[in-house]
């Protein structure tokens, strides 16, 4: 009895943390800049490819956990630098044009990411083995828990806790919230809004890169990776309440766990229940889980 609940729950949580990790950078950028960044999947993909290449460059077949984490951080830094460039050349000029156009601009950026990956890394499928320390599995009763999945869940919760702490208990977080709620007023009160925007974009790109590296052992690298989680992440973002980190976290868990249980009873179409739950949530509670406050 227990395992029939614990198994899908564990799988659901794993899926939820994958979606949340993917959506974390997306949520920051949407929560503050109000830009729904279609390119996030492309950045995530570049992060994964970057980590892949770095793992080859740094040599050695033995992939230690420390080296793996370092690779992810490096991929994040690489994307962060890219974020700085993109903010300067694209996002900043976009502030002046209509919202619908920023959407098409991020889609254009997604195309460029896909093209860049095809041109640099080719279209062949590639994969990276899970670091040996994470390749094991724990078995509790009937439930098989791959250590890697436990690791991803732990990282997801840690990322969430860190973001929550930063937003609600630090000066930077308070500035971010003030800019999110009223950029004009925050500017009048002496907040350097453009600089904060730049840092948010850099942070969003950094998160995309880190998460790309983190989820690398779980993915097959191909130029299609850019489209892998975008729609689920958008769902968690909007069901959660428009760029609210806590809402995104809860929505990711809710939708993924429902999907995990749904797939048990209806295995013919995997992933269906995520979208069914998403559609129902949007109809029943269109304002989102965490309506009202942003971030």
């Amino acid at each position: 009895m227990l395992s029939s609940i614990a198994g899908p729950l564990f799988n659901g949580l794993f899926a939820a943390m994958v979606v949340f990790l993917f959506a974390s950078g997306l949520t920051l950028v949407f929560g503050i800049l109000r830009v729904l960044n279609f390119a996030h999947g492309g950045l995530f993909m570049i992060g994964a490819y970057l980590a892949f290449t770095l793992s080859g460059v740094t040599g050695g077949s033995e992939m230690g956990v420390l080296r793996y984490v370092l690779l992810c951080a490096l991929a994040g830094v690489g994307l962060g630098i890219l974020g700085w460039l993109v903010e300067r050349s694209i996002f900043r000029p976009l502030q002046k044009v209509d919202e619908a156009y920023s959407l098409i601009a991020t889609y254009a950026l997604l195309l460029i990411c896909e093209g860049a990956v095809k041109a640099i890394w080719g279209v062949n499928f590639r994969s990276v083995p899970t670091p040996p320390l994470l390749a094991d599995a724990w078995i509790a009763g009937d439930v098989v828990m791959p250590v890697y999945a436990v690791f991803v869940i732990a990282v997801g919760v840690a990322f969430y806790a860190a973001l929550e702490w930063m937003l609600h208990h630090t000066q930077t977080g308070k500035l971010m919230k003030s800019v999110a709620s009223d950029p004009w007023m925050a500017g009048k009160l002496g907040v350097n809004v453009p600089r904060l925007y730049a840092w948010i974009v850099i942070a969003g790109f950094f998160l995309a890169g880190v998460v790309g590296g983190l989820l690398l052992p779980n993915q097959t690298l191909s130029p299609n990776l850019a489209n892998a989680f975008v729609v689920q992440a958008f769902g968690a973002l909007i069901v959660g309440g428009m760029g609210n980190v806590r809402g995104t976290f809860l929505a990711a868990i809710l939708l993924s766990v429902i999907d995990s249980f749904g797939s048990l009873y209806f295995p013919e179409i995997p992933g269906l229940f995520f979208y069914v739950a998403m559609a129902i949530m949007l109809v029943v509670r269109p304002q989102g889980l965490m309506a009202g406050g942003s971030l």
Binding site: I90, I104, A105, Y107, A108, L109, L110, L111, I112, E114, G115, A116, V117, K118, A119, I120
Partner: peptide, 12 residues
């Protein structure tokens, strides 16, 4: 790969 880059750049 260049085709996506060119299309994206022109859209931008």
């Amino acid at each position: 790969g260049i085709s996506e880059i060119v299309t994206g750049a022109i859209l931008l």
